[in-house]
Design a protein around this nucleic acid. Sequence first.
DNA 1: CTTCATGCGTAGATAGACTACGTGTCGGTT
DNA 2: AACCGACACGTAGTCTATCTACGCATGAAG
Lengths: 113, 113
Amino acid sequence: MKAQSLHGHLDALLLAVLEQGALHGYAIIEALRARSDGSLDLPTGTIYPALRRLERAGHVISSWSTVNGRERRTYELTDSGRRALAGERDGWHRFSATVGRFLGSDTPPSAPA
Amino acid sequence: MKAQSLHGHLDALLLAVLEQGALHGYAIIEALRARSDGSLDLPTGTIYPALRRLERAGHVISSWSTVNGRERRTYELTDSGRRALAGERDGWHRFSATVGRFLGSDTPPSAPA
DNA sequence: CTTCATGCGTAGATAGACTACGTGTCGGTT
DNA sequence: AACCGACACGTAGTCTATCTACGCATGAAG
């Protein structure tokens, strides 16, 4: 999948993966890849700047730790981030409903949690 | 809605509106606005270049006509365009399913045609 | 005659993700 | 011991697609 199409929806995805628990950058990339069956294989040059944007915006906070001699920066959602996520979720639903109206809204209902 | 988020999906939308019949540029804009309840209000500077892209790609063909002393350029889907639309549709479904898996895939099923 | 809706079009700005680098550790292979 | 791949972070510059802001022209309405 062309991640090109992610334009404007990446922040929402990042907030969403962090909703289920704090992760460090590399793990976020793997989480996105895993939960999308490999469709979303985003390069570090996309993820790290995005995370810093989110941190500057106050939606996440980061903290360093050392694991196996490797420096990790772990990101965690803030309250502001949780609110932002709710907004992004809403925006996504409106967006996908609108586009779906043109391209066929029959998105096969993937099994919910 | 920020049309910003359309990035990469605009061509699909254009092909989709043309699927139901040939239209000229201005009418395409109105069709998008109408069928989206005003959510998609795209400026001419977005539409016209996009249509020319599609024409260069062979997905649409245009023809001039004069109506009420006004020059109109009417666009029509080609076979290639129809095939492209099928692909875009497929791509959209995969995309929205993937993103939906993270943001909640519960897109309310809007009534089909 | 001025203004608004219709209708086409281009040039330059802007935004957001991408490519291509660069740094360093750890573990396994040769 | 040298090397290479996985882990883990990060930045600079490019690229693509949409947007903003124009410009031109006709017809109808005030």
